[in-house]
Design a protein around this nucleic acid. Structure first.
Lengths: 207, 207, 207, 207
DNA sequence: TGGTAAGCGAGACGGTACGTCCAGTCTTTGT
DNA sequence: ACAAAGACTGGACGTACCGTCTCGCTTACCA
């Protein structure tokens, strides 16, 4: 970025310069311990019992170190999840040319994750936080959800009836699963996943 | 109930007495004040700021009166909502014979409710509680959600492809809306509602 | 007190009525446990290590119960001391007719108390608090110090040169001891106590 | 010091190295800034609000620079005071030959200092620290108090009844003032100072 | 119709967690 | 090697609520 020197230490030129901690001095050891402790506690006793104080104690860290880098437990859980799935993001959606087979794969994967209490506990936590805080909802949506939805959206592009809105199409696929998961209105099985794919494709397929 | 003498006020089981409050003596005045205060506070500052203590103070009621009749703030919000929409339940789904028109009506109504911050704040609260407590989730599902879904389910029965599972069909209609609402992935408008109905019917209609 | 009805629950008629806890409902058990724990901790590790949190933990009491009835650790220590010496106040100064003998008695008693680390730790704590907080200083002075000084003052009245200010006379007797105690400028012994009495009487005695 | 080579920067004793900072390399600029900031803050908001962190921030200095050269805020205040009154120590007690006049001068000066909130705030801080820490008390006594008391002591030597202990004599003069100042038992005025001198001399004067 | 027992308001209680501040140590980056 | 800067662990602060409890008061039911 030639000529575009961005001063890292004070980003606000106008307005009040909130003292922002220097990320270069951040302790990687503490960061990792906090995220690990968070996942541990989440698996042991769920989000309702997860407190900043317990995270700090389990991680062997001062509370301030958490508050220095995160705004609250929700933000920590989000980072813990992002850290867990790795910087590469979610596994890429394969493109075999067979749309139905590909979708079956992703939908099954999502259903499996939601059905597994150990895996879905983070999703549950993040959903609660999303419903609680508007600003968190936006972070969550942009950092985690949008990329995932966009992948599916691109896969659908050009292969569905050209009068459908792709965002609606993706939600047609995704929404029912999350609804069933949250509301516990029925079992989350592979058969269910396949049923959703069938229905969605019936709605979306050209002809 | 011949032979089965069930004392309402104290169920003695093997010597342990769990005192159950007598609903006949319940103060209707307090009940109403609590539910009204709950909705007020919910509208003023949201579920995260809603506490049993504030409800009691606003309602001019002792905390114990709340804990006597409800298990926590979630249960109070649920009752407040039920009380608000009236004992008759949600407005009956009309049956004009035109399935598409009828569905358009319900779906539009739901979208409108979710889009209105004043109305959706209770739904938001109940969803959070649903994600937090398994037992609450079941109460919520059975008392509030199931009747609503069943209404739609019955309307669909016999008018859709006979190889589709009706529960899945209902969720195909409902799930996308809730997903968009929770995750703030797009606008909740009438056009969106109609789009969902179109897609769902394309998936479900015979042929 | 005829006609002078004093409402106990709200003492402020003008200005803001600070919610004052109801002393009738106060738990005597907790009060006693707090004061005992305070003295214990004070003897174990001194005032610098005394924290409200530790008092609460040791007393098996919530922190709020301390903050409800006291303004801070200083106030608790003051009450602990008052509670310890009993509602009767300090032991009455005997009046044998022999001024010198009587004074020798009190001054020796005070010196002995200051010389004993176990007894003087409370005095030390209260003195620190007195130097720290102006309002505490006034409470301390009026509740604890003034009565003690006045006792001596009354004993001196009429028996000393009639041109001396009695307040100064008392301080002439008391001040040197406290100075030596605080500043550790010399030993606090009976001989010292007697020396002080001799000097003071030499200054005060008629002729 | 033949044979006793003492390395100033690191005293190695049986393998344990306790790094001692080299006073030659000490930054005079930082030292002065720290002492000035300390007095500023003390005057602004008192000793209870004085923290090492605030001193460092105000002085534009790292916290470590304070901890390197002082043991805590008490030691800094002590140095600040010593620095303020200058290396020459307190103004010398004049010797006019008239003992009463000379004493009146010192006692009035001390009373004036204690009565002035701006001046006495440091004395207050040092007294608190003296009561808090035994080792500080000794430093304080030897560095600040003893010289002052000894000056008076020497002035009294040979001019008072020869059966009185001079240390007690000095404290008879000094103690009452400090007591009144700390306990706020009365006004600190010139008249009071003179009264103390009168009483003390009545006790001490030969015959 | 007076006694008893419930619900009620009020709010103190033992606790847990909050988010902030500071102590005192450690580490990084100049200079 | 000292200094500035400031992140770190740890601990206490004073506050807010939790869910339980106890206190008088009012109110309904029963004897």
């Amino acid at each position: 970025m030639p000529g575009g020197c961005q001063d890292e230490t004070s980003r606000l030129v106008f307005g009040y310069a909130r003292a922002v901690p220097d990320p270069n001095r951040r302790s990687e050891r503490s960061r990792a311990a906090i995220l690990a402790a968070t996942l541990d506690l989440l698996h042991e006793s769920g989000y309702a019992d997860l407190t900043v104080e317990k995270i700090a104690a389990r991680a062997g860290v001062g509370k301030q170190t958490i508050y220095r880098w995160w705004s609250g437990r929700g933000a920590v859980v989000l980072d813990a999840l992002v850290d867990q799935i790795g910087p590469a993001g979610p596994p890429a959606l394969p493109d075999t040319g067979d749309l139905e087979a590909d979708l079956r794969l992703v939908v099954r994967a999502i259903v499996a994750e939601l059905a597994d209490p150990r895996l879905s506990v983070t999703t549950r936590a993040l959903t609660i936080e999303t419903l609680t805080s508007e600003t968190f909802a936006e972070t969550m949506r942009d950092r985690l959800l949008r990329p995932q939805l966009d992948t599916i959206k691109e896969r659908l592009r050009g292969r569905v009836r050209d009068d459908v809105d792709l965002d609606q199409a993706v939600e047609l696929l995704i929404g029912p699963m999350y609804h069933r998961w949250m509301m516990r209105t029925g079992p989350l099985t592979e058969a269910y996943a396949d049923g959703i794919v069938d229905l969605a494709l019936a709605a979306l397929r050209p002809h």
